[in-house]
Design a protein around this nucleic acid. Sequence first.
DNA 1: TGTTAGCACTCCAAACGAAAGAGTGCTAAC
DNA 2: GTTAGCACTCTTTCGTTTGGAGTGCTAACA
Lengths: 345, 345
Amino acid sequence: MELSERKLKIMQAIIKTYLETGEPVGSRTISKYSDLSLSSATIRNEMSDLEEMGYIVQPHTSAGRIPTDKGYRLYVDTMMEGKEQEVLDLKEELRAKADRMDTLLKSVAKLLANQTNYATMVSGPQYKSKRVKFIQLTEVDESHLLTIVVLDGNVVKNEMIKITESVDVETVAKLNFLLNTALNGLDVSEMNLAIIQQIKEQAGGYNSIIDAVLNVVGNALTQDDDFEVYTSGAKNILNYPELADKENMVQLLDTFEEKKLISKWDEPVNETGDENHAIQVYIGNETQVDSMKDCSMVTATYKINEGVYGKIGIVGPKRMDYDKVVATLESLMKELDDIFKEKST
Amino acid sequence: MELSERKLKIMQAIIKTYLETGEPVGSRTISKYSDLSLSSATIRNEMSDLEEMGYIVQPHTSAGRIPTDKGYRLYVDTMMEGKEQEVLDLKEELRAKADRMDTLLKSVAKLLANQTNYATMVSGPQYKSKRVKFIQLTEVDESHLLTIVVLDGNVVKNEMIKITESVDVETVAKLNFLLNTALNGLDVSEMNLAIIQQIKEQAGGYNSIIDAVLNVVGNALTQDDDFEVYTSGAKNILNYPELADKENMVQLLDTFEEKKLISKWDEPVNETGDENHAIQVYIGNETQVDSMKDCSMVTATYKINEGVYGKIGIVGPKRMDYDKVVATLESLMKELDDIFKEKST
DNA sequence: TGTTAGCACTCCAAACGAAAGAGTGCTAAC
DNA sequence: GTTAGCACTCTTTCGTTTGGAGTGCTAACA
């Protein structure tokens, strides 16, 4: 069966009404709906067709219709009317936080949750290729050495190393020199045993320190546990009765707390390169997460530098206000672009 | 009226039963309760007294009784029978995480939530007096200086400073020397304008860098925003019907997400010095937080060093299993003591 | 041939009422 | 001081009823 112009219009009317009310929408409601002047009976016939085509369903006989995932998808793909972008008044607030990435992202999560009344997840920046830019060893007191590792993109990691006996200044300088000449510019796969052996030979007698430092370097290069995810607004989900039953709620909260969605975020960002921040909409099972089968998620990707990116996700009921969410996200992304640009210049 | 031996026993029976069932408990239930062989009628008389004294209430006439906050307090203060401590099998898991404080605390929150089936909050370590131990400036590349500030207790903070033109190695060394001689050992109140002026004079021409460094130092000393709080197990609260109504739930989740409880944690720890980790029980409104009026919270304090401490809190319904929670916490605290001891030696 | 009015039918949700059950307070007897 | 007994209260549960919303179908209409 063909999707006639009129059917499209009816679909749009159904979805719009349902987004607002959350109640199954009946033929009479649509009939009264401005544009098309058709009787409820005609609408009924069309709705019957649309149901057969899989765009809407009845929760039970003699109830109105609600959109299926396929119906939402149709709406998002072809009927969403890009709202003029909200002028977000976040600049002030965000910029105040901009000096520290973690607080910035926390604020983003929070502001976005307040703004949209949905739940949000923001993942911290991911670094694609990690190379050592620079290593520094410093004696803090007679039993502690501080190891600082600066990675590509000026990511700084530090860790204390315990030492059993004090090391003199020259030795520290020597070790610093050794480590830097040997390791700078390498990524984790390039630090092979040969190089390590070479360092140890030249270091002469400070093997335990070298080991400890290499350990720190290794951690810095591989550890992903500072792959932080900031969430906010979980409580907002409770406002949507269709999600608020206990069963589902426990699972949703769990998904949120455990940030399980994130595993799915690892997928390589398809660098189609458009300036559109790759905003994507996942409806119901499209999220690939079971507990989210009654939710939708809208994600966007922010980019700090080449190869350094993170994601922002907004989670709400399927009947979320896609227009608004997408517009808000687009606006926010521009904001973030500006902030990152300022920071890097 | 006096709290006779018998009344105490009845109270205990009421509370224990209520902790298990969560239902108002009637006189007949208590009458059948092993120890005391009294008829339900007698129990009724006693219960009537206990109600008058404010230890229990009826949700409505002709319902059983439930404990009031005062009743719970009586139980916690005088009737709790210290369970033999649970042997927690957390050692392995915790030690694996022990090398990084933040992951360690996250694990603590999570394990504790799983173990108890309540919600948990763990606050990161607080440093009471902050002094600069050591400052290091390093040139990372031609437009970035890395400032590292080590505080008392080997807390490390770092921040990048942007510079407009490259600085040569000797200058960096000189600035390092200047900063360290001037600032080491000082706390934030001692860094007055006189000292700052003196540094600037001696630095000669690098005022903007000095300013930037001082800014970083100031942040390091005052910023409390790495006063992190880790939460876990919020979903567990949903399992207790008396808390799971929407109204309350939204507020509780909010309290949790915003970590609002924490503001109350700032109170000076009363260093009564016992080795008992200052385990405290807050019942209902004793938490001082409105949304928690139907909850109880048990907190413990862990100490990493002198003056470096943090708190662990377990939040559950008023009818939480206080015995178990306290025992679990005690056991955990010993575990943590061990871990911290190992780390610092 | 497409549109509409009308009607019978279905199903849910809210309202109502009856009945059961749990528990109390009081009185009188032990 | 303790207990048995009884009347009373209040909640919970369950089935019944009723109203309304909405559909599908049929027949009439343009």
